[in-house]
């Protein structure tokens, strides 16, 4: 039985079948990995591009960035404060979820994208204070609609930048490559 099966596999049709199965598994694996790297669905297709084009500063909506650990998301009333005054957006179907949320008092369930795990203690303020700009980590948002991470936010990427920033300053390098700087 098994022998017959193997014999069948060895003939051209069997080899093609093996190839198809292999390709199917391989593409499934690739697709699986691909999906983990995609930005999730957001409740509103927020166009960063448009907002940046209007000249709105990052800190206007994410004011926590230079004050504390989290940059923060604007509250929906803040969004509505502007959008309410523009006729085009007040009645836009795209912004219906925002309007509903403001009127009903429910909060919009944004899906976090640029996030680090719980065991990483990230602080925006220190990075802003060190002279980093938002786009250094978050990419050029004037070209982006919904936010996507421009790169994988993993430890090697953090460490690389920390090492480069320290340069030849030994004390700073010690501080920036210290495990306790991010993990506690």
């Amino acid at each position: 039985m098994i022998k017959k099966f193997f014999a069948w596999l060895k003939q051209p049709l069997g080899l093609i079948a093996v190839g198809i199965v292999f390709l199917a598994l391989f593409s499934a694996a690739v697709y699986g990995i691909y999906t983990t790297q995609q930005s999730p669905e957001q409740p509103i297709q927020f166009p960063h591009k448009t907002h940046v084009a209007f000249g709105i500063q990052c800190l206007y909506c994410h004011p926590g960035a230079n004050k504390g650990p989290a940059a923060g998301l604007p509250s929906q009333t803040k969004c509505w404060g502007c959008h309410n005054q523009i006729v085009k957006t007040r009645d836009s179907a795209l912004l219906a979820p925002l309007k509903d949320a403001v009127l009903s008092g429910q909060s919009i369930q944004w899906v976090p994208v640029a996030m680090v795990p719980d065991f990483v203690q990230f602080n925006h303020r220190a990075h802003i204070a060190a002279g980093k700009n938002c786009e250094d980590c978050h990419g050029d948002l004037s070209q982006m609609t919904i936010y996507e991470n421009p790169q994988v936010l993993n430890m090697g990427w953090c460490i690389n930048c920390h090492k480069q920033s320290a340069g030849d300053d030994q004390a700073l390098l010690t501080k920036l490559t210290d495990c306790g700087t991010c993990h506690y």
Binding site: K175, D178, C179, H183
Partner: peptide, 19 residues
């Protein structure tokens, strides 16, 4: 695995939980 490691900048013992 360097989970228990010395903090050179603070001179403290660290425990890196996720490591």
């Amino acid at each position: 695995v360097y989970a228990s490691v010395h903090s050179m900048s603070e001179d403290l013992n660290l425990q890196v939980y996720n490591r």
